[in-house]
Design a binder for these strands. Structure first.
Lengths: 367, 367
DNA sequence: TTGTATGCGTTATCAA
DNA sequence: TTGATAACGCATACAA
């Protein structure tokens, strides 16, 4: 593949019979160039198909336009996740500001921090995005200490005022699910969650509990709280056990769609028809939920992606070369270009939304 | 975030009291430097935490170490996909050669080609990876014409000798599934696939058909071939219809796990117990298959990722700066660094593997 | 063995 | 309004 050498500023300048600086001016300060000169230069730019060299631009500006993202394999046992949606949302959100994601792999949180710091020091990335941040996540403090700009999706239990984060209001999600189920007539609403060392799992449990209390159902639901691994098998076991005790739940709220699928399975084993005999609400609205007609709580991931990217642009104090000709990326959505230097976005905590499907749409059974 | 200015070659040189060239030599030609000098320089490199600036290196070498990858959202209706595994495999495969993926989004194949060409022209990427290549995919010829180096996962129906590709032997996968089912005693083995305009779907159907013929079951299976959309609902409908006709299948081979889940649902509607009354084998071994104890055909994605990356390195004729100190990325797995300039790998067509789970493990029912 | 000079493509500063 | 010069950080050819 010969890959004909790309034309440079100098080539354009030579073709147009001007100095390279004039070409640069045409791109960056068009009003300082006489209209006729500009026009001729622009013609040659188009004719030669000139595109500024990003690498040279970044070197010159001493600022990368890459954002680091550690990609992890799906947790074993889990059914699905929303990482791909998040990744897509981030990539899409970066488009307008000409930012791109740089993927890297690492074997653990420490290695991730190490990698991120290396990439940052070597000018490979301007900053990184963290996701699945847990209660005692070591990454935020470590990155803070190493001076690596970052924005977190999710947050630790403490010191959340020391770094920028965006999060989804998980309790409000499970609370909305409880409200919905109570409205349908349910009174014994179980919760299937995952262990309390994970921020997200705990918060989702809290939302359930708070809503149950608010509806005065604390006593009815006291023994209907189970926690275990985030796998289908664990979810099925927990649900099976709850269904077997006296005063079994007529509805389940789960911390993940994976667990919800486990509940589906347990219900089937008990000979219960989901949607008629028992209601189930999952969390995350993964494709699995849609395919199985399972109600689920949907995180506004696209919005999270936009907020994370906006915050990151702010954190990296970017001064992107504002070229007229797109600097070698894809044409951004027109009209959204100027936003990225706005002050840090006001909404850190975004609200999820309950998607009601047949698994929870019917009135509660009379039992 | 002050992000203390990174030390440069010059800083190290000044600290060590040598010229910057000596420092460069320590990194690139250590044997040309007197041991004691080298040692001192290395000490200062470590002390200052010096790391070469990737941007400057890439500019100098006029060669990016980024590989473009268009990330697409999951197809609506689909349950799961193996894209995340592929993405992770690629990222992991690039690590040893210090290559990273650059994610971009685009609205269609044409836009993808346009984007890729732009990124290439501007030095943003050395080449791109294509996936989900269909029979009449416009991307390979278009990229070829525009001189953008690329490697495809999957291949078009024609002109496959004009560009580098890696693919999985899809027919052998479905054939293996048929063999397995025949071995279990099944004779009426249905196929649930997706429309023939997609290379992969067609190839998977061919494997089923060929194996059925080979076992002399053509007549028995003649009317057991259904094609539709790749969704759970479509899969359920097709399977339901096949199960309702005279001489219904006792086993199903499907083109995707999504369709297999549909078959599961149809079986349930007919009151059949999967694994006892009817066998099902899916394709792709997604987490869904594992969670539902569904037999499935697993593509060797990790291997595909390695082969694609190796081929791409070859295609981009890379001469990566072979530094001693890792050039600002993560430490590669030691011992795998030197492979990337080996001649194009011999294996283009990789063989998938049948994972047997309870959905197909039992002997065929006597009907 | 070590150092000097030059250039990669771009942009900022300043002079013409 | 335009052009010459310098610099970003690195690496190569060549000279000392």
């Amino acid at each position: 593949m010969p890959a004909a050498a790309q034309p440079t500023l100098v080539d354009v300048a030579a073709a147009a019979g001007v100095s390279r600086q004039t070409v640069s001016n045409v791109l960056h300060a068009p009003d300082r160039v006489r209209p006729e000169t500009r026009e001729r230069v622009e013609r040659f730019i188009a004719e030669l198909g000139y595109q500024p060299n990003r690498v040279a631009q970044d070197l010159r500006a001493n600022a990368s336009r890459m954002i680091g993202y550690r990609i992890r394999p799906l947790a074993p046992g889990a059914l699905a996740s929303i990482h791909d949606r998040f990744l897509h949302a981030l990539a899409e959100a970066g488009r307008a500001a000409d930012r791109h994601l740089l993927l890297f792999t690492a074997d653990g949180p420490e290695a991730e921090v190490e990698c991120a710091a290396r990439l940052r020091r070597s000018g490979g990335v301007a900053g990184v995005v963290l996701y699945d941040v847990t209660a005692s996540d070591p990454r935020p403090p470590a990155l803070l200490e190493r001076g690596v700009p970052f924005v977190a999706f999710g947050r630790t239990a403490e010191a959340t005022d020391r770094y920028p984060w965006i999060d989804v209001d998980n309790p409000s999600g499970t609370a909305a699910a409880v409200d919905h189920l109570v409205h349908r007539g349910h009174r014994r609403i179980g919760f299937i969650g995952w262990p309390p060392d994970d921020t997200i799992g705990t918060r989702r449990a809290q939302g359930w509990q708070a809503a149950v209390e608010r509806h005065g159902l604390t006593a009815a639901c006291r023994s209907l709280d189970a926690r275990g691994e985030d796998t289908v098998a664990a979810g099925a076991e927990m649900a099976y056990a709850l269904l077997g005790q006296p005063g079994p739940p007529t509805a389940f709220v789960t911390a993940t769609d994976t667990l919800a699928v486990g509940v589906l399975r347990a219900a089937q084993q008990w000979g219960l028809e989901v949607g008629r005999d028992v209601a189930v609400v999952g969390f995350d609205d993964t494709p699995t939920a849609a395919a199985l007609d399972l109600s689920s709580i949907r995180q506004p991931i696209e919005l999270v992606g936009r907020q994370v990217m906006a915050t990151l642009l702010h954190a990296t104090a970017a001064t992107p070369p504002a070229t007229t000709v797109p600097a070698g990326s894809c044409p951004p959505d027109p009209g959204t270009v100027a936003h990225h230097l706005a002050p840090a976005p006001p909404e850190q905590l975004l609200t999820p939304r309950l998607i009601i499907r047949s698994s929870s749409a019917s009135p509660a059974p009379r039992r």
